[in-house]
């Protein structure tokens, strides 16, 4: 495991290693070297299983973070390769030649985040949404509430209560502080 990390750091310039727990390491890698690092891990180091490929929208830093979570079934260890890609020009090399199931992940990312993977099979087809014509819904600047209100006929008069506040009002209408006191009183 440590040798692998060392190799990754030396050969591919990986940085920012985070050990979440023994056998699960996240490491950040440059976009241009990411696919070769994944290939290296799969072919040389025995990380033959792609557990998942997912994305995070860091809107404040203007980047998408792609995570390739790879599993080594012999050592029972996992490495998560984090790749930061530009949010404006969201494009990444396709990895469908390494695992066939990457194609599905990439279709999902294309639809939900708008991250393009040129050359990936069926990348332009609908994945879950059919005929979606708005911003990709998992981007954080997409306002899902506003979209729902504009499209889905919200029923007028619908109220939303904060559950904790509502229960306080219901159970202790006279002295709402009782609720907190009783809840956290160890001698109760």
């Amino acid at each position: 495991m440590q040798d692998t990390i060392k190799n990754l750091t030396e050969r591919f310039g990986a940085s920012n290693m985070i050990e979440k727990k023994p056998g699960l390491i996240f490491i950040t890698i440059e976009q241009s070297k990411a696919i070769s690092a994944v290939t290296y891990l799969r072919d040389i180091e025995g990380y033959t299983v792609l557990t998942l490929l997912t994305a995070v929208d860091w809107i404040e830093d203007n980047v998408f973070q792609l995570t390739y979570l790879l599993n080594n079934p012999e050592q029972i260890t996992e490495i998560g390769l984090r790749v930061m890609i530009d949010r404006e020009k969201a494009e990444m090399e396709s990895a469908h030649h390494l695992w066939p199931n990457v194609e599905v992940y990439q279709r999902e990312l294309k639809e939900m985040y708008g991250i393009n993977f040129p050359g990936s099979p069926r990348i332009d087809e609908n994945f879950i949404l059919e005929g979606w014509n708005d911003k990709p819904p998992y981007r954080r600047d997409f306002d899902t509430k506003e979209y729902a209100e504009n499209n889905f006929f919200p029923r007028p008069g619908r109220k939303t209560n904060d559950p904790a506040e509502y229960m306080k009002q219901k159970m202790y209408p006279n002295n709402p502080s009782d609720y907190t006191n009783k809840k956290y009183n160890p001698n109760r």
């Binding site: 879950i128 819904p137 919200p154 029923r155």
Partner: peptide, 19 residues
């Protein structure tokens, strides 16, 4: 089906079935 329930603000589920 009445008012969207807990999915009232979802981008992908309808709110009122009777429409």
């Amino acid at each position: 089906t009445i008012n969207g329930g807990m999915y009232f603000d979802s981008y992908n589920t309808i709110n009122r079935l009777d429409h």
